[in-house]
């Protein structure tokens, strides 16, 4: 019994974020942000999923590197919180990315029980950006209903004019994020082999 309780307390201690974890996650977020600076241009293009297509690769690659270094529950949420401050100024609805991070982490914790496995990081990285698609769909649906007049633009934004295209783009986003996550995992594995990325 005592061993079990000491193990639990040790696990809790190891799951606590240290300063070096926060610093690394913040730096990785800065990388994501710099490479994702095209967002203000993409938000006005009336094509379903264009934001996710434009940002999918960098929003999966860098977070996976972050999670592979900081293998603690909450790492993805931290990155989402850091980046959301900038997204407010670029496109406020994208702040919902925090919610996506919570869901992605929930899924990973449910199926993998943490970030010990590399594939757990890949799963979280793959789910992170595509999860914004339904949220943005709801946003455009609600927001442009207020506006009312631009039915054509609304249908282009939310993909209701061509369901097949909307489904295709959604799959393309997932595939892109998966590729980005796998690249992130490969980079992290190489760095770990070289002794740069210590757990």
């Amino acid at each position: 019994m005592e061993e079990k309780t000491t193990n639990k307390t040790e696990e809790k201690k190891s799951n606590k974020f240290k300063i070096k974890d926060i610093v690394f996650l913040a730096i990785i977020t800065a990388c994501t942000l710099v490479t994702g600076a095209v967002m203000p241009l993409l938000v006005n293009v009336p094509l379903f999923g264009i934001i996710q297509l434009g940002l999918g690769l960098q929003f999966s690659l860098f977070p996976v590197i972050g999670m592979m270094k900081v293998r603690k529950p909450g790492a993805l949420i931290f990155m989402a919180v850091f980046i959301s401050l900038f997204l407010v100024f670029m496109f406020p609805p994208m702040v919902m990315i925090i919610l996506c991070a919570v869901v992605a982490e929930g899924v990973v914790l449910l199926f993998f029980r943490g970030y010990k496995s590399d594939w757990a990081c890949v799963t979280a990285g793959t789910l992170y950006m595509p999860l914004t698609i339904p949220l943005l769909y709801l946003y455009y649906n609600a927001f442009y209903t207020v506006n009312g007049e631009e039915k054509q633009a609304v249908s282009m934004f939310i993909g209701s004019s061509n369901v097949g295209m909307a489904v295709g783009i959604s799959f393309a986003v997932i595939a892109l994020c998966f590729v980005g996550s796998v690249i992130g995992m490969l980079i992290s594995r190489e760095l770990r082999k070289a002794g740069v990325l210590k757990k």
Partner: peptide, 28 residues
């Protein structure tokens, strides 16, 4: 922004992360 959030008792980890993320672009 960091000072403002610290004043409002925002968690230290969040303010530190935001400060680094914002000021790191030139280093990058």
């Amino acid at each position: 922004m960091t000072r403002n959030l610290s004043q409002l008792r925002c968690p230290r980890s969040v303010t530190l992360g935001m400060l680094i993320a914002t000021s790191f672009t030139t280093v990058l």
